[in-house]
Amino acid sequence: MAEKLLEIKNLQTHFKSDRGVVKAVDDVTITVNKGETVGVVGESGCGKSVTSLSVMRLLKDTPGKIVGGTIEFEGKDLAHLSEKEMRLIRGNDIAMIFQEPMTSLNPVYKIGRQIEEAVMLHLKYDKKQAREHAIKMLKLVGIPRAEEIVDEFPYQLSGGMRQRVMIAMAMACNPKLLIADEPTTALDVTIQAQILDLMRNLSKERGTSIMMITHDLGVVAEMCDRVVVMYAGKVVEEADVFTIFENPKHPYTEGLLNSVPKLGQKIKRLESIPGNVPTPGNMPQGCKFAPRCGKVMDICTKQDPELKMIDKDHTCRCWLYQESGVLEV
């Protein structure tokens, strides 16, 4: 059986605001095995980014707090580590790539210095070794003239190049897990293809596990081994990539797949999911998807279904696949 690297169990991350508590992540369970790429898909506001920030423990400067659940990584519970202990892991064992390569690089530091920082801290390299390592990493991610680029500033690079720098920085300490939050959303398609190709090769060569957060189902189909679908702060379905695309069970997954236009597919009308994603202050009772669901039943609007194993390695949160009559009064 595959070895577990990261196991998020019943994670709950809530944000306090003037108008009450926003349950951005409410019961999320995700497992990432060694060497595996797991896609986390969902629309804006479904909690996929907050999940990744919770794993990285980057919520310190926000009103957000992990209020429940565990994040197990190599025997340690990241949810309950001290900031000091977390620093040894962050950037070292777990690294992250963000969506906006411009805003996540420091504009006033040279590229080289930004890569060296983590290397000197975690790998205990001296300045000279760190610089050599930085150049080596830049070459690895396919940056031409690495010896010159290392002394340039982020503004001198294009979007695709910046994202390569981000990847070089993330991979510099050879992390076991790479969290990529919409890594190609800001890029053009031909550049996206280059970056995805690079990530795929790096993870294969180095055995890095990737948690890929995205809204693009095409990217998921190409990159991922397993897929987790999220809606309104909860995991609604999880299965291997083939099952998700060929035999989706949750009506939301199905609706999502049918609403994407596909190249070369001749259809007059797209199927669409009616209504809007619920806002945090206005969460429906019962199943969060019930108001938009075509297969809604009585129980759906009253009680929230649980995430149930419906097949081998296939879980789904829907009353359609759960025994009825569990309604508690």
Binding site: S158, V189, I191, A193, V220, A221, E222, K262
Partner: peptide
């Protein structure tokens, strides 16, 4: 041709010959 082959298609079984363009725009 390159643009068409670069678009990720939501079908995991599809294995395409991808034309990767060099460099930036």
């Amino acid at each position: 041709k390159a643009l068409l082959s670069a678009v990720p298609i939501p079908n995991p079984r599809l294995k395409r010959e991808r034309i990767l363009l060099k460099g930036d725009i």
